[in-house]
Each structure stands twice: as structure tokens, then as C-alpha cells.
Design a binder for these strands. Structure first.
Lengths: 222, 222
DNA sequence: AGCAACCGGAGGTGGGTGCTCAACTTATCC
DNA sequence: GGATAAGTTGAGCACCCACCTCCGGTTGCT
């Protein structure tokens, strides 16, 4: 019953230093290039050999998890904090803006938020803590007659995908450009008599399928 | 001064038949996989050898141009037809819906419309015939007080990119899903007192830069 | 029949990725 | 100040994919 990580002897000092360097480098590299970045990239950025990276982190997934766990938790915190907003509409738009800001600044975070090759247990743990607050906000905003009634929680990931996609392609040229289109979408979310019909909303499975098809690895595969 | 294509002797019958097969196959393959599709894919689909494709079309670009020229012209026609609409708003939304419908059904068309590796002369010829009608529609819809005033022509390509991106990733699962988000954006385009500020619009150069970064080849390169 | 035109597709070329391992270096402990 | 385990390194292997060439064999045309 002894926990493996607890009984493990501490790393030698140079090894521990390299481990930190690798994590730091991973944060930068994954932020810039997303989960598609190679561990060679990380090693070069960290100033260590590739072998060192592989010794410390058996898979890219393991490194991703360590490098981005904190930011993933932050996303949960943002969703929960949005519940404190005075209105459902404020909370929902606050969450959208915060999530876009974070994911626009870190492509790896965005890839993970879409469900990319993360340890499923951690991913599910995050997702199951983000969905309930957002569901609550959507319902509250609809009962307050500010959010249009034909929107569901499952639209939220799709909105984020669209906007962060713009963000990543325009980041070099106009790092703020995506805000323009997020605002346009937010204005489209407002209840209004002039709004057109939206058609059938995505199911939870639809969202998963789209996210999977959107990920870099899927694109490379076909 | 003799035109090379005019003085060229006609192809042998089997060669002409294969040429047509290749063009037909190219239309299917590029529609499904976009400009990233390989000429090997096209050859397999056409039931001919790769060598045959390369003899007939020295580069992928040449084949793309022949395979998609008609659809590109159709895009121009759609833009011009939108001018006939009763109001600027109707014309603009008609154009958006038509452009999205066509580009969602043909990924290659979408890639070319974004400016992917097409012979520059043809590309510019298309663009310079699409922009004026859209500019006119935007201005008309704004003077009619239906389109919000902080939108410019250069927003149109970005809107198309976002929506067609969703279209391509959701096509397998829910071929109509992108319409939902196009409608949301269209509702966001309507003039309204509750609309938020949009920030600085993209310049023409910004659009080019974003489109370039969005293309499959650019993603592979870095 | 004879010959130019045409076809096919194996394979050369060039690029990239994920990962290993044997030779070397360094921290730590007595 | 050794002895030793722990750590490091990066060339190199295995693999995959895309573009394109080349030439022995085939086919349509006159």
C-alpha cells in the first residue's frame, strides 16, 4: 500500500534542476506550438539532451500533464468563479472571455481543453467540474431572458473552438483580433426578436466527435 | 505569337479519357481532403498511374486550377447575384450562406478561397471581382441601419474561415452543424443597442496574413 | 506494320518524428 | 579522495509520408 511517489528517493540535485528546466521549457514550447510540439523541441529549449527528457517523462502525455495541470485547474476555478457574477449573462460572458484569453495565450492548454491525448482520468475530472457551473449559468441566463433560449451547454465548447482557432492563426499579426469575433458571437447569443432559427443543437457526443476531429493528431492522420 | 494551347495537337483518345478521369477524381479528392490531398490520392481515385497525372498536370496547382476554376467563378457569380437582393442585409446574408454552403461542401474550394497556392493571377482575378460587390453590400446594409456600423469588408473572410473550419471538423458527424454558428454570427452582425464594442478591425494585410497562417501547408511548415 | 504517344508504378529523394542505448560525466557517500 | 550509482548525452535507428522521375512495356493512329 506504499505510494510509489512517496517512497521514491529524491532526485539528485542536478537531476532535479534539469527536471524543473524541462517543465519550464515545456510550458513555453507547448504554449507556442500546442501538443503537436515535439519533445526534441522541449529538450532544445531546456538546454538538455533528448534522452534526459525521456528519462524523466516516459511519454509526452506525462509531461503535458505536469506542465499544464495548474492551468487546467485554473480553468475550473474560472468556471466556478463565474457563478458568483450578479447575473447569469455576466457570468457566462465572463467565463467565455476568460477561457478564450487563457486558451489564446496557450495553445497547449487549448488542445488539452479540447480533449487532446490527456490522461483520461485527469481530463474527465476537469470536464466534470467545468460543465455543471456552465450549465447552471446557461439556465440562469435563459431564465433571466438575456441568453437566447435555443442555446445549450454543448454550444460552449464549439464557440471556444471557433474563437481560439482564429486566435492561433492571427496571434503573430494581431494578438487581439479574436476578441472581435468573440464579441460578435456574444452579441449573437443575446435574446432578440430578430434572431434567426438555429437548428438542432449538438449533442454531447457530437461535441466529442468534433473536438477529436479538430485535434492536430487527427489532422495529421488523415 | 501563336498560342501554345491552340496550336497543340489534340490528345490521343485514351489520353483525353484519362485526362477527364483525372479531373473528375481531383474534384472528388480535393473536395474531401482539401489542397493537402496528394496527387497519389487523385491517381488512385482516377484509376490511373501517378506518372499519368504528372504528365498531364506538371504541378498540383495546375490540376487544382482546372478542377476548381468553375466553382471559383460560381463564387463570383454568387457575390454579384447578391447585389440584386431587395436589401443590403438580405444580399450580404445570402452571400454568406451561399459561400459557406459551397465551401463546406468542398474543402479544396475553401482552401483556394483562402488563397492557398493558386496561380496568383487567377486568385487575384477572383478576389478583385468578389470584393467590390461585398463592399457595396456592407455599405448598403449599414446605411439601411440593419448591419452594425463597426463591421468592414475585411471581416467577411474571417467569418467564413471560422464557420468553414467548424464545417470541416463536424462534417462527418453533423453535416449541418456549422449553419448553427453561422446563424449566431449573422445575428451578431445585426445592428443593436445591446451590442458590445468590437475593437480595431482587421486590415486587408491582416486578412492575408491570417489566411496564410491558416492554410494546411503553413501548419505543416511550422 | 511501324512508330510516336502514352501508361504504370517501383523507387529515388528529401523531410520529419518518436525513441533508444552505449559511452561518458557528475553527485553523493563513506 | 576514491568508489559507485545516478544522471546525461545525442548520434543513430526505425519508421512514415509526400513529391516526383524514369524507363520498360503498351496502345492508338495512319
Amino acid at each position: 500500500m506504499t505510494d510509489a511517489t512517496r517512497t521514491a528517493r529524491p532526485l539528485r540535485r542536478d537531476a532535479e534542476r534539469n527536471r524543473q528546466r524541462i517543465i519550464e521549457a515545456a510550458r513555453e514550447v507547448f504554449a507556442a506550438r500546442g501538443v503537436a510540439a515535439t519533445l526534441d523541441d522541449v529538450a532544445r529549449q531546456a538546454g538538455v539532451g533528448i534522452g534526459t527528457v525521456y528519462r524523466r517523462f516516459p511519454t509526452k502525455e506525462a509531461l503535458l500533464e505536469v506542465a499544464l495541470e495548474e492551468k487546467l485547474r485554473e480553468q475550473v476555478r474560472v468556471a466556478e468563479a463565474a457563478l458568483e457574477a450578479p447575473t447569469g449573462w455576466d457570468g457566462l460572458t465572463m467565463f467565455l472571455r476568460a477561457a478564450v484569453r487563457m486558451q489564446a495565450a496557450d495553445r497547449g492548454l487549448r488542445d488539452l481543453a479540447l480533449g487532446a491525448e490527456l490522461s483520461l482520468t485527469l481530463y474527465d475530472r476537469i470536464r466534470e467540474r467545468v460543465e455543471p457551473p456552465i450549465t447552471a449559468l446557461v439556465e440562469r441566463a435563459q431564465s433571466e431572458k438575456s441568453l437566447r433560449p435555443d442555446i445549450t451547454v454543448h454550444d460552449v465548447p464549439l464557440l471556444l473552438m471557433m474563437v481560439t482557432e482564429i486566435a492561433h492563426h492571427s496571434h503573430q499579426v494581431r494578438p487581439d483580433l479574436h476578441d472581435r469575433y468573440l464579441q460578435l458571437l456574444i452579441d449573437g447569443l443575446r435574446r432578440s426578436e430578430s434572431a434567426g432559427a438555429l437548428g438542432r443543437p449538438p449533442s454531447s457526443d457530437d461535441v466529442d466527435a468534433v473536438a477529436k476531429a479538430w485535434l492536430p493528431s487527427a489532422a495529421a492522420r488523415r
